[in-house]
Design a binder for these strands. Structure first.
Length: 217
DNA sequence: TGCCAGGCCGGGT
DNA sequence: ACCCGGCATGGC
């Protein structure tokens, strides 16, 4: 049996060869990445894009400006992304956190806190769980935290890497322990998993035969 | 039409 | 420590 590190790198190479580089996260600024991370919770990206477009029309993709908008108004703007009242409250929580700890100076955060400390603090925001936190850390703050999502779990499970009952932290540890700790690698790896998942594993059922990862089964 | 999408929280066992 | 209902829109 192949070492896990070799298997993970080979899966990566296979996906990259088939799909090409992703250029993620699809946003123009760290703050927009953070907003997108919250809005895409259990929601298709196409619905999130509509909400981001409305926010952009109202010039709210800057933290100081979004901060000034009432929560109910914000909720209406992001309606298309679903769970919109909930997510408006979550965005307000996120804004309050970053206002309080760095006045929206995201670069300053990395000097002030260790990576693990920062992760714990972000996880303390109500409405931000492990996936959203790691998305913020990796794609907005450029720290090497591997993002685990539903696709990551399904793919890893069906390729015999992990049992059903594996937790988020355990699966994240699998990648952390078996890959070089590079932001660029973690970035592209997660992006490829999502794109593979969308394209080839559309339903929860099984991987289709055209999936580039099929040979790893 | 019903199921699904790049989760998370709070209450109940 | 799990398990589950709630949260909501838009696409296929």
């Amino acid at each position: 049996m192949m070492a896990k590190a070799d298997l993970l790198l080979e899966m990566y190479d296979t996906m990259l060869a088939r799909l090409g580089a992703s250029g993620w996260w699809p946003s123009k600024s760290p703050f927009e990445t953070i907003v997108g991370a919250v809005l895409t919770q259990n929601t298709s990206w196409s619905n999130v894009e509509k909400a981001l477009a409305v926010l952009r029309q109202h010039d709210l993709l800057e933290p100081e400006k979004m901060e000034a908008v009432p929560e109910e108004t914000l909720a209406e703007y992001i309606r298309s992304s679903g769970y919109y009242r909930l997510k408006a409250a979550r965005l307000k929580n996120v804004l309050r956190f970053f206002r309080d700890c760095c006045d929206f100076d995201f670069a300053f955060l990395k000097d002030r806190f260790s990576p693990q400390d920062l992760r714990e603090r972000i996880l303390g925001i109500k409405g931000v769980g492990p996936e959203t936190a790691d998305t913020i850390l990796l794609y907005a703050l450029e720290l090497p935290f591997f993002v685990v999502d539903a696709y990551t779990f399904r793919i890893a499970n069906r390729h015999g890497l992990i049992p059903e009952e594996t937790s988020y932290d355990e699966l994240q540890l699998l990648f952390a322990e078996n890959l070089p700790q590079q932001v660029s690698l973690f970035n592209e790896y997660h992006a490829l998993f999502v794109r593979i998942g969308k394209t080839f594993c559309l339903k929860k059922k099984s991987l289709c035969e055209n999936c580039p990862l099929h040979d790893f089964l």
